Amino acid sequence: MQLVVGRIGRPHGVRGEVTVEVRTDEPDLRFAPGATLVTDPASAGPLTVERARWHKGILLLTLAGVEGREAAEALRDTLLVVDSADLPPIEDPDEFHDHELIGLTVVTTEGERVGEVSDVLHHGQDLLVVARPSRDEAYVPFVKALVPEIDLGKGILVVDAPPGLLDAEAE
């Protein structure tokens, strides 16, 4: 299974540097100089990182062979992926790879089905995106107080939501 760890955004400057929408909790490791990145579409890569730097909270990459703004623009919206089999196992029982959480059925502590985890966002605070039937998505901060239980074997993630978190109509 391929996992998206980033998406190339717009060019930055005129020398071929690209912005990256980070979708991994280990960007400094995943996008380190020398790292080879598999792409989707495959025809865009593989890409090798020459330089990585943060600028105003945005990851900027210089990629081997990408010279000039036009070459960088041609990579826009290219997904950067890794094979889930290549990820090392996590030893901490309270830590999970994103792909382990996506697809889990979300239930409340009372057992009421809420929806399904459709994505995990990493924006300082990790957020679980919960797709709900016939309703807007819900965003649940991925913290122990709100997510007290995860059972990968049963495919269930329990949410202890305060009033209003899962009720889009609440004011």
Score class of each variant (00 low, 15 high):
F31P: 01
G13W: 11
R15A: 15
E17Q: 09
R10I: 12
E17T: 07
R30A: 10
R30W: 12
V18C: 00
A32G: 06
T19S: 13
T19H: 07
E26Y: 13
R15F: 14
G9I: 02
R30G: 04
T24A: 09
E17S: 07
P27E: 01
V20S: 03
R10S: 15
G9H: 01
T24Y: 07
R23P: 02
E26G: 06
E21Q: 13
D25R: 14
V38S: 15
A35P: 04
L29D: 06
L29Q: 03
G34I: 14
L37A: 02
V20M: 06
R10D: 15
G9N: 06
V22L: 11
V20N: 01
R30N: 02
E21M: 11
D25V: 13
P33E: 10
G34D: 13
R15I: 05
E26D: 13
V22H: 12
G16F: 07
P27K: 02
G13R: 02
E21I: 10
E21G: 08
R30K: 11
E26I: 11
L37K: 00
R30E: 10
L29N: 01
R10E: 15
G34H: 15
G13L: 02
E17D: 10
D25Q: 11
D28W: 01
L29Y: 05
V22R: 09
L37V: 03
